[in-house]
């Protein structure tokens, strides 16, 4: 594939992303026409004031959140899969989501179980801070372990062990919690793309930008890592420094997303595979933007489905990504008969 073809593909991908962005905004419990959606987004006045209000305050931020979470998780999944040379790795192998879960579980259920009183009034910031703090602490533990480890595979196991540990604590908390608190925790663990204020959204956007910039700087060494750590080192790549860069980038991306939108599992693992099955390359200079666009698009589609257009109901986003995404990945792998990694 030469440069011009690549540019055309990416332009096409960008257009598809834009299309689903508009579809996502126009569909929902109230259907808003395409032209009205466009007008409203471009800042022109539209006749139906309540539609304008819905778009500005509800659907536009939600669509933006979908793009940020989908792309951020997919890119961190790609980085983790290459760093650990493992097709089963995803953004959460470093224990980020388990840390966040523990933090949130402690805030929602812990107060009742540990101190004998329960307060069901939680601002969204409480949850966000608890999730950030939880994932930050677990991440710190995994990173400090990674500095002591000589081989990268060990970090993977340590991350999984931390997930098991925190999962067990959450289980104990759940076991002793009254049903309302348990339900509140379970609802958080389903993930949610709505409910982000402009302020929260801008913080998420800032984290997303920093994470992606760090990712850009690790692309070269990720490509070298395709030949294995020995070769990467013999070509002048500083393994530990690069490993740190990739881990920090993933932590900022996936950590902030988990804090604001909950643990959304499937996208980070599946999108890199989806792209590798469609585009036959391992070059991260191509994979990274492709995964970015595909992650964002997939998340927009899943969110559109989760809204169940025309009905008042919404489905949990975490379930939709898997129900919708897993069959696609299975179908693609079966069609190609093997997974080239």
């Amino acid at each position: 594939m030469n440069l011009r073809n690549k540019l055309i593909y990416f332009l096409l991908g960008g257009l598809i992303l834009l299309l689903f962005f508009l579809i996502n905004i126009s569909l929902g419990s109230v259907s808003i026409s395409f032209s009205e959606t466009l007008k409203s987004l471009l800042g022109q006045p539209i006749e139906n004031q309540s539609n304008a209000y819905i778009i500005k305050n509800y659907r536009f931020p939600k669509a933006l959140t979908s793009i940020l979470t989908g792309s951020g998780l997919a890119v961190s999944g790609l980085m983790m899969q290459t760093l650990f040379r493992n097709p089963l790795a995803g953004p959460y192998v470093l224990g980020l989501s388990s840390g966040a879960s523990l933090g949130v579980a402690l805030v929602i259920m812990g107060s009742g179980v540990l101190f004998g009183f329960s307060s069901l009034v939680f601002s969204s910031w409480n949850i966000i801070i608890a999730a950030s703090l939880g994932s930050f602490l677990v991440m710190l533990a995994v990173i400090s372990a990674s500095f002591r480890m000589k081989n990268t595979m060990g970090i993977l196991i340590i991350g999984i062990m931390f997930a098991a540990l925190t999962g067990a604590i959450v289980n104990i908390l759940s076991y002793f919690s009254p049903s309302e608190e348990l339900q509140k925790y379970v609802f958080w663990s389903f993930g949610s793309l709505g409910n982000l204020s402009a302020q929260e959204l801008s913080i998420l956007f800032l984290c997303w930008t920093i994470g992606l910039i760090l990712c850009l700087f690790s692309l070269k060494s990720l490509n070298a890592l395709l030949l294995g750590e020995n070769y990467a080192k013999s070509m002048g790549i500083q393994l530990k420094k690069n490993r740190f860069l990739v881990i920090i980038s993933t932590c900022i991306l996936a950590g902030s997303i988990t804090a604001f939108a909950g643990p959304i599992a499937f996208v980070g693992l599946a999108v890199p595979h989806l792209i590798r099955l469609i585009i036959p390359t391992s070059n991260h200079l191509v994979l990274m933007p492709a995964v970015l666009i595909a992650g964002a698009t997939l998340m927009l589609i899943c969110d559109t489905i989760a809204q169940l257009p025309g009905s008042e109901l919404t489905l949990p986003i975490n379930a939709v990504t898997s129900i919708f995404g897993a069959p696609i990945v299975i179908w693609l792998i079966l069609r190609k008969r093997k997974l080239v990694f």
């Binding site: 040379r85 395709l226 030949l227 036959p280 391992s282 080239v340 990694f341």
Partner: peptide, 8 residues
């Protein structure tokens, strides 16, 4: 015997 990405 280096393990590397066969997709390259």
């Amino acid at each position: 015997n280096a393990v590397f990405s066969q997709n390259l």
